[in-house]
């Protein structure tokens, strides 16, 4: 085999391999919209996180703005402390509302952020004050039955 031909093939092979890695990173792994380095961390205390998992998306108006990085249980407040990293380019006011939502009927759970009207923005390490827990099916049914019973008693 001629040296030049061999070099050409090896060059094509290496380029194809690097190209494949780029496709995996950008097209499949979505590296271009989610970059781990340019983020800031905020926390939120939730009474109940339901089925929220580490790495669950954090969305605002349905747009992915960050991810959950850790979930801990605090023995001081007996609450769940959820840490999330938010992309630097998305800044939120201090009084932003965080709630745990479900995408679709059987979909995964995520944190939805609703921006408030405060002048001050959330900074690295801040804690979100206003949170809304996950809807747990049993509690929902329980509350529904309770309401139904009290309605019946009213008559």
């Amino acid at each position: 085999m001629q040296r030049a031909t061999l070099d050409l093939w090896v060059g094509l092979f290496v380029l194809a391999g690097i190209g494949a890695l780029m496709i995996l990173s950008l097209k499949v792994g979505n590296l271009d919209t989610y970059n781990g380095s340019d983020t800031y961390v905020i926390k939120g205390n939730f009474e109940n996180i339901g089925g929220l998992k580490v790495r669950a998306p954090v969305r605002s108006s349905g747009v992915l703005v960050g991810r959950v990085t850790s979930i801990e249980f605090s023995t001081k407040t007996y609450n769940a402390i959820v840490t999330m990293s938010i992309e630097q380019r998305y800044q939120f006011p201090k009084d932003t509302f965080a709630s745990i939502l479900t995408s679709g009927l059987l979909g995964e759970q995520y944190i939805g952020l609703d921006a408030g009207g405060d002048e001050m923005m959330l900074k690295e390490g801040d804690t979100i004050m206003k949170t809304n827990s996950a809807l747990v099916l049993e509690e929902m049914i329980g509350r529904f039955l309770f309401d139904k019973a009290s309605e019946d008693n009213a008559f």
Binding site: L24, S25, K27, V28, G29, N30, L31, T33, Y34, G36, R55, P57, L64
Partner: peptide, 12 residues
């Protein structure tokens, strides 16, 4: 769906 669930560091 693929892009929101495949993570660069953890998966790729």
């Amino acid at each position: 769906q693929m892009q929101s669930n495949v993570d660069f560091r953890i998966d790729i």
